[in-house]
Design a protein around this nucleic acid. Structure first.
Lengths: 335, 335
DNA sequence: ATTATTTATGCAAACGATTTCGGGATCGTT
DNA sequence: AACGATCCCGAAATCGTTTGCATAAATAAT
């Protein structure tokens, strides 16, 4: 509870706090004798400098914040793992916030991180985030922010993303080449950068192969998971597509569940590709073909970029815009 | 960047910092006129009090730390969700640490949390944690710690756990009642409280039904995932059990993979029960029977307990020891 | 022997906020 | 008119640390 302070040491050793402080930081102005005295005593009483006092003084916390919609999601937890690895290597601590897809919580988190003097922030935006003005203000004020995965498109910023367009394009084309003609696309909230790009990739593949766009085959399922399952099932019944391309972990599971419930056979009745990082994709029945995002690597990249920005404000000019390749992992669900 | 401070407001309004502070905290000593003046101006310039300064003064951070072995794990991320919900309700922030099953990182995290004046800590211990002395010291010093899931057994402390013994007992008995005679148990590191209790539950069920213990059917697979798969496969080949009871999410997946690779049929060749919180358990083929831990509720309980301890040091006497019921979710893998 | 220089240390301000104490107005009561 | 009460407000200490400046003692240079 009552930790030892520099003042306690000073009193015990009959020195001033300044001397103690300098001795501990190995300043040249302190005699070796005194230094040893102080250092040994500090070790003995298990002294640790109070990081809060340091933060107050230095206006720096050696911590970065990470805001994701949801932790219990393979993609995001791997992303966090990547960030965490780098942060740990470079002596930073990570504080994780969950927005739960709620603007209110996202904003709270950002304000908290800023107020707490976190040295920077990595953000993956919530579903319906529209008012990004206050984030831009922060950024314009010199606060270090790196966006990751779900990024804003209304202003310039540092971004680390997966090749969503290309990934979606390849997945769709793979389905087409396997003879599928009526490919449904289940995606997340329409304003998300990831949704848009994946949709565009999907559409581009259709167009390339002369398949007309069919709006009935595209549905947006935002964060409300309860209705997602129902909506997907309804659309299967009404439209009877011969393939599915889903845009997230969450949606892939809902689709699988819907398919199960309707007793459809994959891939005979319907082919299936997810845009997921599910650890269990290969154990599903049949094993799920999926566009894999390099979540860990994205996290590492974003973490590295952010810390470079923090330590290095001068050298990096212009906004970084890093895209990492996805890979199409073909399994049985799409053949 | 340069946030507005109370000093800035005082200067701008020609008041003292004390007056500004009091006005913002709605003190009775300040005239409504002045209050309005200050409050409006503060809003206008977007003033937020510096939580670091507050922490320094109050020796309180309104934050709690959570240490788990791994975030990318359904059980732990749900646990965290529970903690997060309660913390949010009660105006605390949560900082998550991953120990990665490493003592070194666990210790770092604890020291960091303590130094940062986090108001308390929820810990789920790493694999091989043996030296718990320094944690006990902290606890004896009055630092608030609640252990959750993986708890120490060498000293008294606040605990929130699942009914591991009972859950394992019921699962094993269920297998026995379905005619299985040679039931293997795959579990985690032997020193973990959860491993011990689940093993005991398994053994108790065997004993009750007159099945002798067979050490060849029990294997410990600690955090090293790469060998786990191989070890499990070897044991299947050499021992040819007719059922599996695994003690964690991670191990359940390795087992499923091993079964797949050996082309065994579940449940005809081998029955299977996991002790898991896999979201996808019902989509595996066949759907996985599992002992479900109330992860979210455990998190909420631990969070609540911790915050009660923090705010309320007097009233709670003695160490709390809370056990929450597991439920056996029967699906096709065990019939 | 006197002055200059080095060596080792202490004092005090600063970071941003709260809070104890005290004091100057203003008002009412007698 | 005098006294007490009430109402507003400011000065200063405090939390733990760092750091510019001052100072004392010891040594070196003249």
């Amino acid at each position: 509870m009552g930790s030892v302070t520099i003042k306690d040491i000073a009193k015990a050793l009959n020195l001033s706090t300044s001397t103690v402080s300098r001795a501990l930081r190995d300043s040249y102005e302190i005699s070796t004798e005194t230094k040893n005295l102080v250092v040994n005593y500090a070790k003995e009483v298990n002294y640790h400098p109070n990081p809060i006092a340091l933060s107050l003084k230095e206006n720096k916390s050696w911590s970065i914040g990470v805001i994701v919609p949801e932790i219990a999601n393979n993609f995001f937890s791997n992303l966090i793992n990547g960030i965490d690895e780098i942060a740990h290597e470079r002596n930073y601590h990570v504080t994780i916030y969950q927005s739960k897809e709620l603007l209110e919580r996202e904003k709270d988190a950002i304000i908290h991180a800023f107020a707490r003097k976190y040295d920077g922030l990595i953000i993956s935006l919530a579903d319906y985030t529209d008012d990004l003005g206050y984030i831009k203000d922060l950024q314009d004020n010199g606060y270090n922010i790196v966006f990751c995965d779900r990024v804003p498109d209304s202003f310039e910023c540092h971004k680390v993303v997966a090749s969503n367009f290309k990934g979606a394009f390849e997945a769709t084309e793979h389905l087409i080449k396997n003879g599928r003609k009526k490919i449904a696309h289940i995606t997340s909230a329409r304003n998300l950068s990831t949704s848009k790009e994946r949709l565009n990739g999907y559409l581009a593949a259709l167009e390339k192969h002369g398949i007309p766009k069919n709006d009935d085959l595209i549905i947006y399922c935002a964060s409300d998971s309860e209705t997602a399952f129902k909506v997907i099932k309804d659309m299967m019944l009404s439209q009877n597509p011969d393939a599915f391309f889903t845009a997230s972990d969450r949606l892939a599971l809902h689709c699988y569940a819907a398919i199960n419930e309707l007793n459809l056979k994959v891939p005979d009745d319907i082919a299936f590709i997810g845009f997921t990082n599910l650890k269990e994709a290969y154990l599903l029945s049949p094993p799920l073909t999926t566009v894999i995002q390099p979540a860990l690597e994205m996290g590492r990249t974003a973490g590295d970029l952010l810390i470079n920005l923090i330590e290095n404000k001068k050298k990096i000019t212009g906004f970084q815009n890093i895209e990492l390749a996805t890979t199409l992992q073909i399994r049985e669900s799409s053949s």
